[in-house]
């Protein structure tokens, strides 16, 4: 009797210790967010004063100033529409290619796959200089095109291709065969049968692609020079007054504005998002 009780207590104590130690490990993961939100509400002098998570006075005006200081709304919109465009294009193109690699037999398929895989292993810094000249030659400097073209056709699109290929390989073929019997073209089979069955993989590609585009930094840094064409990461790294002095409090308020919505979406859809990333690893 008493033995089983202590057993139970022991388990409870163990559980509490366990949770407590996880909480401690979690501090550096959570704290930056709390600090960012709190500092975005402080005045410039307070950020560097005695550290405290609670501002002495909440400066909501920081959030308004962010918008008057830079065309922040336009920059927000740029990031959003570029990320959506990149995601839609990547879904379309990579699922087409992934389908061909998974289902269709053709000479050179293995070679094509090998070539594409090699692109995954090369950091984009290797090709950024020629791509800079390529974009210039195309007359697309200081436009949003490179921010769309490079991710869609670069390594990110190829990650999508292989994710889709992997998923198509695991799908049963019977339905597609049936579709062909009913007179659907190859495109029709892909569009009406294969794609609807691959929602989880499409979601995975969409989430990964969106986040990648949303957080892109090197490409905007190099290709975009007009303030109103900036994307968020670039805008965040550029909060200085007309004489080049940093405006910390505005920068942190802007950072909060850029991060919090994504965090909220993540919290709502966290199960789906985490599963997508788990799926993305399967590709091997």
């Amino acid at each position: 009797m008493t033995g089983s009780l202590t057993q139970r207590q022991l388990r409870l104590v163990k559980q509490v210790c366990w949770t407590l130690s996880l909480c401690i490990v979690a501090v550096p993961f959570v704290f930056p967010f709390l600090w960012m939100i709190s500092s975005g509400l402080k005045g410039p002098s307070e950020i560097f004063g005695r550290p405290s998570l609670i501002p002495t006075a909440f400066r909501w005006s920081n959030y308004l100033e962010v918008f008057s200081y830079q065309p922040f709304a336009a920059q927000y919109f740029n990031s959003l529409y570029i990320a959506v465009t990149v995601t839609v294009l990547t879904l379309f193109i990579s699922s087409l290619a992934g389908y061909a690699l998974a289902r269709l037999r053709f000479a050179g398929a293995a070679l094509v796959a090998l070539f594409l895989v090699s692109a995954l292993m090369v950091p984009e810094e290797v090709t950024i200089i020629p791509n800079f000249f390529l974009i210039r030659w195309l007359g697309l400097s200081d436009t949003h095109w490179p921010l769309i073209l490079l991710p869609v056709f670069g390594p990110q699109g190829i990650v999508g291709t292989f994710l889709m290929r992997q998923y198509f390989l695991a799908l049963p073929k019977e339905l597609e065969e049936a579709g062909k019997m009913d007179g659907l073209s190859r495109f029709g089979v892909w569009w009406r049968i294969a794609l609807p069955m691959s929602r989880p993989a499409l979601a995975a590609v969409a989430i990964i692609t969106f986040l990648n585009s949303w957080n892109l930094f090197l490409e905007p840094l190099i290709f975009i020079s007009s303030l109103e064409k900036f994307t968020l990461p670039l805008a965040l790294s550029n909060f200085t007054d007309p004489y080049g002095s940093p405006l910390w409090h505005l920068q942190l308020a802007a950072t909060t504005l850029a991060v919090v919505p994504i965090l909220i979406v993540y919290l709502i859809a966290q199960r789906q998002i985490i599963e997508s990333f788990a799926l993305s690893g399967v590709k091997g």
């Binding site: 930056p32 600090w35 950020i47 986040l211 966290q270 990333f277």
Partner: peptide, 22 residues
Amino acid sequence: RTVFFAPVVTSAVAWAIVWKFL
């Protein structure tokens, strides 16, 4: 799981800016 994964969805720029202060 949610907590440990949250920084992954955060932009590297924001992450670097905040840690530079910390």
